[in-house]
Design a protein around this nucleic acid. Sequence first.
DNA 1: CCACTGCTTGAGAGCGCTCCCAGAGAGGAG
DNA 2: CTCCTCTCTGGGAGCGCTCTCAAGCAGTGG
Lengths: 341, 341
Amino acid sequence: MPDQTTGSRPTLEAVAARAGVSRATASRVVNGGAGVRAPLVEKVNRAVEELGYVPNHAARTLVTRRNGAVAVIIEEPEFRIFSDPFFEQQVRGISRELTAHDSQLVLLWVEGPGDHERIARYLGGGHVDGALAFSLHSDDALPALIDRARIPVVFGGRPAPGIDPAVPYVDCDNRGGAREAVGHLVGLGRRAVAHIAGPRDQTSAVDRLHGYHDVLPDADPALLCQGSFTEDSGARAMAELLDRRPDVDGVFVANDLMATGALRTLRERGVRVPEDVAVVGFDDMASVIDRTSPALTTIRQDIEGMGRLMVKLLMRLLDGTDGAAPASVITPTSLVRRDSA
Amino acid sequence: MPDQTTGSRPTLEAVAARAGVSRATASRVVNGGAGVRAPLVEKVNRAVEELGYVPNHAARTLVTRRNGAVAVIIEEPEFRIFSDPFFEQQVRGISRELTAHDSQLVLLWVEGPGDHERIARYLGGGHVDGALAFSLHSDDALPALIDRARIPVVFGGRPAPGIDPAVPYVDCDNRGGAREAVGHLVGLGRRAVAHIAGPRDQTSAVDRLHGYHDVLPDADPALLCQGSFTEDSGARAMAELLDRRPDVDGVFVANDLMATGALRTLRERGVRVPEDVAVVGFDDMASVIDRTSPALTTIRQDIEGMGRLMVKLLMRLLDGTDGAAPASVITPTSLVRRDSA
DNA sequence: CCACTGCTTGAGAGCGCTCCCAGAGAGGAG
DNA sequence: CTCCTCTCTGGGAGCGCTCTCAAGCAGTGG
């Protein structure tokens, strides 16, 4: 009988002893069993079962230099990004895909510049194989931070220009989606199609604005209004638009939340949607859409899918069939027709 | 010159060599430097600096058997718990406290029974030092799962009866808070004080109901209504209450979200708050309170603080001054007087 | 001047695992 | 029957670190 008196967890050694094989063979079986004859595989597996053996992660990491963990970096400078439904969906996708790759999700919550030193040290400390981050603002210190840690990283959302262009990212086709939205409004016969844009320092907002201009390069600047992706800012922008151009008959709003605000303003002013003004949003965020009336026509993006793609890209980086760094991925968008346009 | 030709990260060995000391001394300095003479400490620190040395986590874990990581288990059976503001605040507290303890937050996202096997394996695999979980429903399989992994755990919220009573948890004083809420209404001279309760399978809701009965043991059962912690259920319950007992002049609602619904119903029915009916909620959830009118009087609980406490409790468990398992903690609540009562 | 105490320091043994390499069989070709 | 090849298995080194233990070295009292 092997010494099993201690309360500690059984080691590979113990499994090997019980199965009557060497540690090397036991290891092979535990890791898939390639090149081990069936009867031995059987024996080892039984020993694993009986002993309740679980590989020691630290020991394995020490020699393989693989952690099986990926950091997800969350910055919360001003908003409650954590409870943002967009973000939630993306993290869900990440979590699912990570699980599929037998990797763990380590949450790094950055609350301010004071945390940067700590985060950099952590990332550089070999605790995780790679990192996933989200590009929020162009004045973000995060990219530099990660760059310093010399760790593979994939961004969610196109990083602001100026960031190392070699860093792969996953983003939806903001520009193309915007084109489709505006094209839809134009196709509906709308003559004065306005745009309520998002913050200038976010690439997604900038790209959507570009998409608008792609279709309407000569649009009256008065048809352009600046919002900040919040519901109230959308309401205000819509009011301004109605004041400046009372003849406006179509609006492409850069996100659903602002579109909700715009719909509110239109309702308050007695403007009919879509008869008088047709409205198209962006995101197709279920929790927002549910509350709109009339039901919001919008551009859908597969947010969870983007989260999964981020992981897939990172894994490819890690598997490092060297040299060929995977390119960024732009996922397609689609128009979802509802009642508002 | 030491061999620094490889691109790999420097080891303690390298630091020791550069500082002209032994690996043991270098290790001592890196870990606080107790019992090492000042000049050597200085030398080693300089070497660390120059080499950009970062300790190898896996190697350290291998010998210390401490991971510096804690699992936060999130179950998402039906609701979007992740984007729940309550949850967000709690996780923020956890994250902050974990950082203070130099530990990392590993997110374990349980999506269904299919994940249980994986989670149990992970928890039992020595990847994390302990786990934090939240008690949601009484039919929860989670506690059994964690029990099986034989890993220290602290719950957020009192677990349902039937769960191992030795497991420590952190919860607010639901019952006392409810007593205070009802007492406040009674103190205001309200004669027919009703209660809109939360789901029966959640201990927080049950405790709040108990608190109500503590103050009003002989309350008319018609003054009791069942909700499900959602806004709509609160609205429906309020309507039912008004139908059953038109003379109702006070309501203690088991959470703010339902209170919002109740306020809506009251407004729609032309009932004045607080003149005709005084309303007290529970939670003091900023994002909910902001939207209520009149401003909701409610019971405040320190949600972030509870998150932090969960970590503190777990750390005490881990430091294991054996035997004395830390007791659960009940945090105090306080009445926040606003306009609705 | 020597033994003794107390504080620093270094040598070395692992922690549990993977992986390289050599050796042992087995089977086919000469 | 021997030699060679191929497949499978075991021995053993070593990943980077911590920690125990003993040696070294002052300083002190007898």
